[in-house]
Design a protein around this nucleic acid. Structure first.
Lengths: 344, 344
DNA sequence: GTTAATGTGGGAAGCGATTTCCCATCGGCA
DNA sequence: TGCCGATGGGAAATCGCTTCCCACATTAAC
């Protein structure tokens, strides 16, 4: 009573039935087994009376599977990840399961560690959010970890990274960036500066590629001197932009591969006395909800982040056990707002 | 091999020792027991060779305690919570533990559900973030849940809510809001409009009270017609502000009890053609990192959100088992920025 | 009126660790 | 040489729950 736990055995005893029966009742009749109504009632009521709460560890051990679902992000404070995380969390909780949050800090080794922990807990599934480095070196350990995870019956889904043979919710970065580029060209821009991401991240590269291909299609040669590599963070965007401006550029429009970097860029430009969009247009990607109130409002490519999280979770929690890894394509909608305008 | 798990038994067998010995080695010698160096080596190496990974459920069952630490927030997409969450997560992971994320959606019943799940998993501790309703009705079940949780040996810490008898990291909302009010008065403001939070949330009320008390101290009577109640969300702030302006106000400064609502307020004012700060000053509270790049930059009270998360986690993970619930006071620093200026 | 089919409850064997005893062995010391 | 206290290792009991399998009963089928 004071420090004790109520066990199934105690419930069974109180109800005057065997452990097996009590278990059956509380599990809503395992498979086709039936329990008479009267016993069922006795068990449930004494369980309630005793305040019985099953020991999840014991259940996991016996069932060899837990009610845990992993959610792996790089940085939960980053609004991109927190938006997706919100979707994942909602869905997982709706299914009566529990979210285990792991943050990688963008380190592949940490990611492997997290996956191992999930494996150790016999997690039911895991949703990997954000793009990973694609160079085989650092992916190797991760891939093996994932392989082990699914060998245990765990399901895996990715958001924004069709790297692994797993269900994936993938925004069409290439098309979105290309469409954005076309809109900017249409506005009259001819020379662009680019705030790229780390080159080994698929997401970053896809957005760059999409942007480039649209430029090429329009007969424009991107000026590679105006490409700065950032790290997807606000401060990275800020620093890269300062560097870019110090070096000097003739670009009339700056495309940052995500909104967070674009935010840093605008901050840097303001400090340097460069007015946006009058002197330099700025465009981003993602349409981060928290950043929608920036001034000037960001021209960007909208991604339904929260919904993507929900879809990934659904994918991984779906009863159906399909062979083919599913790929859900997400369309990004170009939003022309205040931060871009036709060049002077 | 193909679908199997490696158990401690297999490791022991491979090393030619008993289960007990293998367990002792892998746990770094339980209590004062020593294992000879040679055996120790044999065990660790065959564990590594076999790719042994302990079954966390089995460990939890045997030890009656898991490596899980709960993190409960209202809405992980809200930058306030994601900032604190980042701090908590960092610290928990540094300790080699695993974070279980629960989102309440601001519903007390969901919160109880989460706590029960944590109890069921024998979580080591839980960090509750964000203020809860203080009316006893909805707190009752939660309090009981918490009581049960700690009876099981679980530790509890709260961030920003010294409601329960638990370790708490609490910003000094009253003092911060008062200091902010004094600064605004010093700027020359005499009539204020207030975007309050839900009245039953301690955080919201403390900030209101602090603000009011500073006004009174300055001989100013707050005009209660200009108090709008919001819900801590951006859209709530937006809607309340529209309502406020429709009703008309003579205030020269609008104080929103958090940055998120202030953001909504600024958006509404812009739509209404009211210039900030020229026509109306706006101040917030929290200094949300993601919102620092707003234009105009927000006058606010800075709270070290991430650090608060870290502290709460430290509190709950500290080895020392102190009797008195600890209370860590966090000072909020007033930051006068662009969104407020002396009235015309 | 047997035999077979079905429906229900209980017994007991795991699940994979931890941990408590208990025993064997090895020195040390008288 | 003999006894005793350490010391290191193993057998086995748990932890709380699920589930296979058997027993008994009731009813259906012939």
């Amino acid at each position: 009573m004071s420090s004790g736990y109520v066990t199934l055995g105690q419930v069974a005893e109180a109800a005057g039935v065997s452990l097996a029966t009590a278990s059956r009742v509380l599990n809503g009749s395992t498979s086709t087994r039936q329990v008479s109504g009267e016993l069922r009632e006795r068990v449930t009521s004494s369980a309630r009376a005793l305040g019985y709460l099953p020991n999840a560890s014991a259940q996991s051990l016996a069932r060899n599977s837990s009610s845990l679902v992993g959610l792996v992000v790089h940085d939960i404070a980053d609004p991109y990840f927190s938006s997706v995380a919100a979707g994942v969390t909602q869905t997982v909780e709706e299914h009566g399961l529990v979210v285990v949050l792991g943050t990688t800090d963008r380190s592949p080794s940490k990611e492997s560690t997290i996956l191992a922990a999930l494996r150790s807990h016999r997690a039911k599934a895991v949703v990997l959010v954000g793009s990973r480095s694609t160079d085989s070196k650092s992916t190797e350990a991760l891939t093996r970890e994932i392989e082990l995870f699914r060998r245990q019956g765990g399901r895996v889904a990715c958001v924004s990274q069709p790297v692994l043979p797993a269900d994936t919710v993938s925004p069409d970065n290439h098309a979105g960036a290309a469409e954005l580029a076309r809109s900017l060209i249409e506005q009259g821009h001819r020379k662009f500066a680019l705030l790229a991401g780390p080159n080994n991240l698929s997401t970053a590269r896809e957005r760059m590629d999409g942007f480039h291909s649209a430029l090429s299609a329009a007969g424009l040669e991107p000026d590679y001197q105006d490409v700065m590599h950032g790290d997807f963070t606000r401060d990275g965007g800020y620093a890269s932009t300062r560097r870019l401006m110090m070096l000097g550029t003739e670009a009339t429009c700056l495309f940052a591969v995500n909104d967070v970097m674009a935010t840093g860029a605008i901050a840097a430009l303001r400090e340097l006395g460069v007015r946006v969009p009058e002197q330099l247009s700025v465009a981003g990607f993602d349409d981060i909800p928290t950043l929608r109130d920036l001034t000037p409002s960001l021209t960007t490519v909208r991604l339904p982040l929260e919904q993507m999280g929900r879809q990934a979770a659904e994918l991984v929690l779906a009863r159906e056990e399909r062979e083919e890894p599913r790929l859900i394509d997400v369309h990004g909608e170009v939003l022309i707002r205040e931060s871009t305008r036709p060049p002077a």
